[in-house]
Every structure is written in structure tokens, then in C-alpha cells.
Design a protein around this nucleic acid. Structure first.
Length: 925
RNA sequence: GCCCGGGUGGCGGAAUUGGUAGACGCUGGGGACUUAAAAUCCCUUGCCCGUGAGGGCGUGCGGGUUCGAGUCCCGCCCCGGGCACCA
């Protein structure tokens, strides 16, 4: 279909990447070289990069790392005959754009568009084989219409609710955050402190999917560490729920969760969380004041940063006693903040002998400690003891293995109606609303109970579409109860209104709450029509939800929108879904292990359960690229009087480890230091050690490498190759500007092999046959490059191509087929230069469309083998032996080899090791 | 504290999964071409002993298994990541 009047090329004499890279990018765009075709006869291959957030800072050097890897894979798959889908888009809702809007007054939409344009230009300048016709943008109403639609399905299924609860509130960002977004008491975005605050929130019931999310992990090919992180985050634990009676109180019982029902006889007290609903009731009069005070203290404490929390155990006796169902002993009930309301039942049975926390608490408050498990082979079991053992002090269960006792005691409790086996999860429901402007509006209108019932009883009403079985309601303290009415598909998208100010309202509400004309709506139950005005006639009136969705919403399902990006009637055409299914390969950073990757799995499973999707998991195969650090830096430290301080005497600050006085640091050049033992020292004073390390790129450190500069100075091909050559894709590795120079040199050598200094085809390229050696090396290279791309060992693939090129350079002639195959192997890595050379060699169609080179295994069959000869495990000689050599002949030849003989003389051969085709080892004494 | 991942030349990193440690690239040193420089090409570059041929040592540290260990086992140290009163 190419109309390209060949020989279309730049005709450059020298390797002029500034000319040829834009030329070929335009060619691919014009010819739609990387168009992914729905329902193609070819097998599909969907390779996906994590959706970038188009920040104002532009593309970071880390972005091209993952994108290049996926592009290499996609390009090879295309050449291998797959119908490849490699799309790109923008995760453009989010806090930075809104923060920018607050400070500059520019609407987020405007600023975001500018950032997207920059990102697109930068990404295009790197020559990725992307189908740009499928570009998406999560902030586009045609996109978020369907984000809202998915939310409505969650709502309908009862997976969304509203609750006023203590949440992590970030004052600097003016919004609540999800558990997953809080890292050590700070916001994941922006690193601002967060605090606990009661705030009305939309919450998604991800806990209902805890088990499915856990089980699904076994079915997907992901890095083990990421699976482990998700497993730990979900935090499945099996135990028992045990119900304790209260002394002199027939009404109430306290339920606890424990993973160690076997230690029930050792339970000598019980602890409630300060927020436990029964606390007030169980507190006796004389203890009321102390408990009340403690509760208040605990509440205030939780307003502090979590990291500041003292780990010292505190607590107060409530005055009540519970009855241990195992031995009917009365045990005191305490309140303490080391028990969390949000996990289990908010109450525990304390077994100080076999739990470190309970032990510490019991010691402090002088509570009884009864050991009930004895370590197997020791008389004295030091407490607290948490290992396995046999039961003691446990009546009829004495002598039982504790593992067995868990089961037996749980069964007994079950029979008596005192408990049952239970599973608990650490996972909490997902705080899904943000009190901000720049996010998807919720397609929800709040109405009165009466109006809601009108809708609920009118089976013809379009508002029935997403009505849940149980209404979602919310009532402010002392206020009326409002009902959440889901808007029908026909009312979507609910677009963001224009507002005068993006400043948070200050009341904890989003800036949308100030948009009076947008807030008030009139709904026609019959038609589903919605107007921004007072209700008239039969219409009911409602108030819009003013919170918006978090940034994760769009990225939860964007990979599905690429399949059918311009569909206005449906979220995704089922026929198209059946063809493309899910990404065959997903590449992105490990920092999203429990955020995006957990949320997306949740949504995908919900969509699967309601029959919208055929697949149970969104990303069957996942790969994390590593981080690219700045260049290696050498730093010296000096005290105030200007004396050097060795780096090993310095701790973070920088301050002196012992004296704690602050020091000054200075970056020095590499040639001022040398290696001495394990560390680097100053050449001028070898007693002073120097800190040598590469840091994460950051503006403040001034070690940021801008991809635009690299493309300008070395070309996109060199950048792509160099990033892949740095080291294993998954590893963290430092950038080196000198290193990329080597890659530039490699590409110039490639150029000169094909084009001579006059700009003509190098005369050494002929129709003649290559030597057997060349053929074999080419086959080896095809094999290695093909395999390495498949497994993303791209650094070693490049090494192999360098070896081949080095060999070709030494040959007097090269066959046209060989050089072309070499270019094809290189093409996924360096697509521009290879397109140019391919065209110059007379090819009419893009190199990206040419069939991937193959080789014949038979070429590797040799009739001789190389055998290494060792004496006592030390390499002494190398032998070339016939493939079918007998053991005797091999050993004879080896033992008489001139280089081996001296090591055998005057020695006794104790043992001969012979591994055919590999190695001979003479063991001598 | 607990759970992962990782320590190999001056630097980034290879190493058929127990069989020649240091591929490939960078840097450094020497040389060729050039009036000169750039570019390019050639040689060299783990450490120690030796003029040399050659020999010894060497994959964070200490032990072990094995004919043979960067690779497997045990005990430490350091770096990176995750979780952190989760009962």
C-alpha cells in the first residue's frame, strides 16, 4: 500500500540523525506503518506501556526506558507476523495540574493540554511504533463518560457507598487520600504530611474482592516481588472469631479475632480499641473518667503523624471482666491503642506468654502471664514464645501439638457456640473520592427519600438503570438523610463545569461545591432528562455530588479503551474485546505494585463478573523496568574549620556520626579520587574516604538528563540503544554521558559499513557468498537477538550485534543478504538508521514490515568439539577433539598435551573427570 | 523488627544455571594517519611476583559440600525496595 516512490530516503552522505530521524518518523506517520488492525487474520499481539502522567516537567529519561523495551518487542512481533497493538495515551487528571491552576489561575484543562502536546512531541521524537490513531486522554469527556459508566456498575452492584469515617487527610493537597497513597505518614504525591480526619467519603468495597484478588495472583506471570507485595497488602489470615461473655452482663458479648485459638487458655486479659463501640458500656463508673481521658488522648494521638507515634504501650482498665470460654475464668478488659479498630473486630484476647505486644503490655501493667505452649526440646521456654510446641496448662488439650490444637479448640468452640473459623484481611475498602476539581465528577445526584422512592417504584424510569438493591444514603449529623441517585447512561458524561476558582472550598468540600448553577439539578423521572435549574412540574430536584474521582480511576481501565477508542455508543464492542482481549505484555514501574495494579485488577474482575469482559485478569504478563539514576558522583565532606571528614564518619544531613556537628559537602571530579580496598579515597590524601554513589535524578540535585538534549546531540537511535545497553532492564542503573558516546560510535560504524564516505553503497557489499564463519556468526546472532528480545535481555542482544558488526568490519566483502539481516535485527532497537540503510540498499517497503530473519540450526552442527583440560580444577589447556572421540583417546590426548604434562609429572593421578564435549579434569596428588 | 532483591575490574555490566571468571561497552595507557586537531583504525587495560617464558591470587566477609563454586548449603556484613503494634 506504500505509495512511496522509492528509493525514498534522505540520501545523506554521513550519518545525519538530525535529518533522517524526523524523515522516517514522518514516513511512518504518513503510511500508518504501525496501524493495529481490528479482526486481522494475523494473530494479535498487544504490548502496553503504563499510562504516563503528562507532567509539566516534560519527558523524563526514565520514560523512554520502558517505552523502548516495549517498542523493541512490538516491532519484532510485527516482523514475526503478528498484528501488533502498541498504543499511547495520557493519564491527565490529577493533583499537580490542579495545584498549578491554583497558583497561576490557568484552567487545568489548558495547562494539561499543553503538557500533553509536549509529551506527544517528545515521545514521537523517539520513533516508537505507536498507533497514534488510538491515542486516549483520561480527561476527555468521551473517555471519562465510560469511567463514570464503570463507576455506575460498581454502584449498582453495591460496591460503592458513602461513609463519614476517619481518613487520611492531606491539608496541603486539601483532600483525603487512600491508604495506598499514604507512605510513612506522608502523601505519595508531593510528600506532604497527612493526618486523621473524619470526612464524608465515597468508598469502593474492594474488600469484597479480597479473595479473588488473592487467588488471581497465582494465575498471572508477574514479578514475584510484586505478587508478594499485593499478597502482603491484602493480608489474608486464617484464625478464629471467638465470642467472650461479660461478667454480670447477659446482654453483651465481645467478639475477638485471633490467629492463635490454640493459646486460648493463656488469655489472661482482653483489650478493646479506643474506638470500640462497646467501650462506653463496658466501662464501670469508677473507671469512667480514666477511660474517657484515655479515649480523648488516643483520638488526639491519631491526629499526629503516624511515624511520631510512640511504640510504648499505654492503656487503661475498664473495670469490667470477660469470661474466658476455655476455663470460665474472669479476665480484665482493658482499653489500649495498640489494638486497632480497623482490623478484625477491634478487640483482642491477650496472650502475653505467646505474643510480644501482649507480653510487653502485661509486664508494664503487671497482668498475669500464663504459658500454654512449651518448646519441644527444652524444659525452660523463654517468654514470650511464639514458636511451635506442645500445649501445657490447657486442661484436656495438654500435650497436643499447638498446630493441631488450633483446629481442635476451634471445633470445640464452634460446638459450644463460642466461636468459629474466620478469615481476616488487612485490605481496607478503597477511599475513592477526592475533594478536588480536576477529576471525573461522580454521576450521582442526591435526592430526598420521597423522590428516590418515586424513582424506585417507576419501573419505566431511565433512572432505574443503575439503581442498587440497597439504596446508598448519607445523613449529616442532625440532618436529613439524602439518597444517592445514579444517573443513567444517557446522562453521561457528567462534564466538569467551568469554575471561577480552583481553591479548595476550605470546608473539606471540592471547588465544585461553589459552582452553584451546576449543583442544582432538575430531573425528569419519565424521560431521564436532567437540567441545571430548579425543578418544574413533575420533575424532582437534586443536588450533584461535588467530590471527584481519584487519579487512579482512568488508569483502572484505559487499556480497554485502546481497543475501541472512538466508540461513542458502548464502552467496548464485545467483538473487539474478543479479538484483542488483554495486553500480552505490560511494562511499567514497580512503584505501582499496590496502587494502579491492584485497583485495575479489582475493576477488571468486577467487569468480568458482570459479563462485560471475558478475561478474569487485566495483565497476564507484567514486567517492571528499573530506575535510571544520575551519573556517579564523588562527594567529600568538610567540617567548619575546613578539614576533610571521611565519608564513613558521615551520616545523613550531612552530620558527623559521633560529634553530630553539621558538615559541608562538595562534589569532586572522578580523577581526584582512586580506589583503595573497598572504597574510594582522595588522591591528595588517601586517608580520607570519599562517598561514591549515583543518586536518583532530581531537579534539586541538578543531575537530570533531558531526553530532548540527548536526541539533539546523539539521536533517538543512540538514546534507545544506550538505555537498553545500560544493564538488565529491571535493574537500577546509573546514567553515563560518556557511555552514550560509545553507542554513537557503534551507529556510525554501522552507517559506514553500508554507505561509503562518498554517500554511495559501500563496494564491499556484493552478491558473493559469505565465509562459513560469517554465516555461522550471523545465525548465532539471529538466534541470540530473537531469544533475548523475547525475554527482554536487551543488553546482551546489543552486545551480540556489536560482535557481529566487529566481525563484518574485518571482512573484505559482505553479502547483501547478511548486511540486510543484520539491519533487520538492529531495526527494533534503532529504527531510523536501519530504515534509511534498508531503503538505500534498494528495499521498497519499510524494514518494520519485512519478515524477521530466521536461521537453520544445522549450521551449528560441528564435527569437532572444544574441550578444556584442567588439573586440580585449574585450566591448563584447550583441546579440539573429534565429536565422537572415545573417552580413552580424549584422556590420552589431554594428559600428553605439552601444557598439561608439567602439572602431571611426579604426581599420582587420583581421579579423571571427563564430561564429553566440555571438560577434562585430572585430580592429582 | 519482619519479608523480598542485590554485592563480580577504575565504571556499567557478561558468564551456556555447577565446568575456561571478566563477553560487550565506557574510561585509562601506548601507537598509526594528520602541519595540527577532530574523526577513524590498531595494540593494551583485574591484582601481585617475574626482564621474559611463566607462576600465584581473585566474584562483599567467614566456613562447608564437590574432581570443580560467581553459581549450591550454613553463619555474618553492607546496599536497595516493601511492610510495620494487622492480633
Amino acid at each position: 500500500m506504500s505509495t512511496a516512490s522509492q528509493s525514498e530516503s534522505t540520501g545523506c552522505t554521513d550519518y545525519n540523525f538530525l535529518k533522517l530521524e524526523p524523515f522516517w518518523q514522518a514516513y511512518w506517520e504518513k503510511n500508518k506503518t504501525f496501524k493495529a488492525e481490528d479482526f486481522s487474520e494475523k494473530p494479535k499481539y498487544y504490548v502496553l506501556d503504563m499510562l504516563p502522567y503528562p507532567s509539566g516537567a516534560g519527558l523524563h529519561i526514565g520514560h523512554p526506558e520502558g517505552y523502548t523495551a516495549s517498542d523493541i518487542l512490538g516491532r519484532m512481533k510485527k516482523a514475526q507476523g503478528f498484528n501488533v497493538l502498541h498504543p499511547m495515551g495520557w493519564d491527565a487528571f490529577g493533583l499537580p495540574a490542579e495545584q498549578h491552576a491554583i497558583t497561576t489561575g490557568t484552567p487545568p484543562a489548558v495547562n494539561t493540554q499543553a503538557n500533553i502536546d509536549t509529551f506527544r512531541r517528545q515521545i514521537k521524537s523517539l520513533g516508537f511504533g505507536i498507533d497514534w490513531d488510538r491515542e486516549i486522554n483520561t480527561t476527555d469527556p468521551s473517555f471519562y463518560k465510560w469511567t463514570q459508566w464503570i463507576f455506575l456498575h460498581l454502584f449498582k452492584m453495591g460496591l460503592a457507598y458513602v461513609d463519614k469515617r476517619p481518613v487520611w487527610w492531606c491539608p496541603a493537597l486539601g483532600t483525603a487520600l487512600a491508604n495506598e497513597e499514604v507512605i510513612e505518614g506522608r502523601s505519595e504525591r508531593g510528600n506532604h504530611p497527612v493526618e486523621r480526619r473524619n470526612q464524608r467519603q465515597w468508598v469502593l468495597r474492594i474488600t469484597a474482592y479480597a479473595q479473588k484478588l488473592l487467588e488471581g495472583l497465582d494465575t498471572i506471570d508477574w514479578p514475584e516481588s510484586t505478587k508478594r507485595q499485593q499478597t502482603a497488602w491484602i493480608g489474608h489470615s486464617v484464625g478464629a472469631e471467638i465470642s467472650f461473655d461479660i461478667q454480670d452482663n447477659a446482654e453483651d458479648k465481645v467478639k475477638i479475632f485471633t490467629t492463635c485459638p490454640d493459646t486460648l487458655f493463656g488469655c489472661t486479659y482482653m483489650v478493646l480499641a479506643p474506638e470500640h463501640p462497646l467501650l462506653a458500656k463496658l466501662t464501670t463508673e469508677e473507671n469512667y473518667k480514666a477511660v474517657q481521658l484515655y479515649k480523648e488522648q488516643a483520638a488526639r494521638k491519631s491526629d499526629l503523624n503516624r511515624t511520631d507515634l510512640a511504640k510504648d504501650k499505654t492503656g487503661v482498665f475498664t473495670g469490667s471482666y470477660a469470661i474466658n470460654p476455655a476455663n470460665n475464668k474472669a479476665i480484665p478488659i482493658w482499653v489500649a491503642d495498640y489494638v486497632l479498630m480497623s482490623y478484625g473486630t477491634g478487640a483482642i484476647m491477650a496472650v502475653p506468654a505467646h505474643d510480644e505486644r501482649d507480653f510487653e503490655f502485661a509486664q508494664k501493667f503487671e497482668l498475669p502471664i500464663t504459658p500454654v505452649i512449651a518448646q519441644k526440646d527444652s524444659e525452660e521456654t523463654p517468654l514470650p514464645y511464639t514458636g511451635p510446641g506442645k500445649l501445657i496448662n490447657s486442661d484436656q488439650y495438654n500435650g497436643l501439638e499447638n498446630k493441631e490444637a488450633k483446629r481442635v479448640i476451634t471445633e470445640a468452640l464452634n460446638k459450644e457456640g463460642h466461636g468459629k473459623e474466620t478469615v481476616n484481611y488487612k485490605l481496607r475498602d478503597w477511599i475513592f473520592s477526592r475533594q478536588r476539581y480536576w477529576g471525573e465528577p461522580f454521576p450521582i445526584v442526591w435526592v430526598s427519600k420521597e423522590d428516590y422512592e418515586k424513582v424506585a417504584t417507576n419501573k419505566q424510569s431511565p433512572f432505574q438503570e443503575f439503581l442498587p438493591e440497597v439504596p446508598v444514603t448519607f445523613s449529616e449529623e442532625g440532618g436529613t438523610t439524602r439518597y444517592a441517585l445514579p444517573l443513567p447512561t444517557q446522562a453521561l458524561p457528567v462534564e466538569l463545569p467551568e469554575v471561577d476558582s480552583y481553591q479548595p472550598s476550605g470546608t473539606g468540600e471540592s471547588p465544585l461545591a461553589n459552582s452553584k448553577t451546576w449543583l442544582q439539578v432538575a430531573l425528569d423521572i419519565e424521560t431521564g432528562d436532567l437540567h441545571c435549574r430548579e425543578a418544574q412540574g413533575n420533575e424532582i430536584s437534586g443536588v450533584r455530588e461535588t467530590d471527584t474521582m481519584p487519579q487512579w480511576a482512568g488508569s483502572c481501565w484505559y487499556y480497554l479503551r485502546y481497543l475501541d477508542p472512538s466508540n461513542t455508543d458502548a464502552f467496548l464492542d464485545p467483538k473487539i474485546e474478543a479479538y484483542w482481549q488483554t495486553p500480552d505484555f505490560y511494562i511499567g514501574g514497580a512503584e505501582h505494585a499496590v496502587l494502579h495494579l491492584l485497583y485495575a485488577r479489582f475493576w477488571h474482575k468486577v467487569l468480568h463478573d458482570i459479563g462485560v469482559l471475558n478475561t478474569p485478569e487485566p495483565f497476564p504478563k507484567l514486567f517492571h523496568q528499573g530506575i535510571i539514576l544520575g551519573e556517579l558522583e564523588f562527594t567529600t565532606f568538610k567540617d567548619s574549620s575546613g578539614n576533610y571528614v571521611s565519608a564513613n564518619q558521615v551520616e545523613h544531613g550531612p552530620i558527623h556520626k559521633e560529634t553530630k556537628v553539621s558538615l559541608s559537602s562538595e562534589k569532586i571530579e572522578a580523577d581526584a579520587v582512586e580506589k583503595k580496598g573497598d572504597h574510594f579515597v582522595l588522591k591528595s590524601d588517601p586517608n580520607i574516604t570519599v562517598d561514591a554513589r549515583a543518586y536518583k535524578m532530581s531537579k534539586s540535585r541538578g543531575n537530570v538528563v533531558n531526553p530532548d538534549d540527548i536526541v539533539q546531540n546523539y539521536g533517538a537511535d543512540a538514546l534507545r540503544l544506550y538505555e537498553m545497553f545500560l544493564g538488565p532492564l529491571e535493574a537500577m542503573k546509573p546514567w553515563s554521558t560518556q557511555g552514550i558516546g560509545g553507542m554513537s560510535r557503534f551507529l556510525r560504524k554501522v552507517w559506514r559499513e553500508v554507505i561509503n564516505p562518498e554517500g554511495e553503497i559501500n563496494p564491499k557489499i556484493t552478491q558473493s557468498e559469505d565465509s562459513a564463519e560469517t554465516k555461522k556468526l550471523l545465525a548465532k546472532t539471529i538466534k541470540k537477538v530473537t531469544q533475548d528480545i523475547e525475554t527482554l535481555n536487551l543488553n546482551t542482544a546489543i552486545s551480540q550485534m556489536m560482535i557481529l558488526l566487529g566481525h563484518l568490519q574485518k571482512q573484505a566483502t559482505i553479502s547483501q543478504t547478511s548486511i540486510k539481516q543484520f539491519l533487520q535485527l538492529l531495526a527494533p532497537f534503532a529504527p531510523h538508521i536501519t530504515e534509511e540503510l534498508w531503503a538505500r540498499l534498494g528495499e521498497k517497503e519499510s524494514i518494520a514490515c519485512a519478515d524477521w530473519p530466521t536461521f537453520d540450526e544445522a549450521i551449528f552442527v560441528e564435527n569437532t568439539v572444544k574441550v578444556v583440560v584442567q588439573v586440580n580444577g585449574k585450566m591448563r589447556a584447550e583441546l579440539e577433539l573429534p565429536k565422537d572421540v572415545s573417552k580413552e583417546d580424549a584422556l590420552t590426548q589431554a594428559s600428553t598435551h605439552a601444557k598439561v604434562v608439567p602439572f602431571l609429572e611426579d604426581k599420582t593421578r587420583v581421579k579423571d573427570v571427563y564430561v564429553p564435549g566440555r571438560i577434562i579434569n585430572f585430580v592429582v596428588r
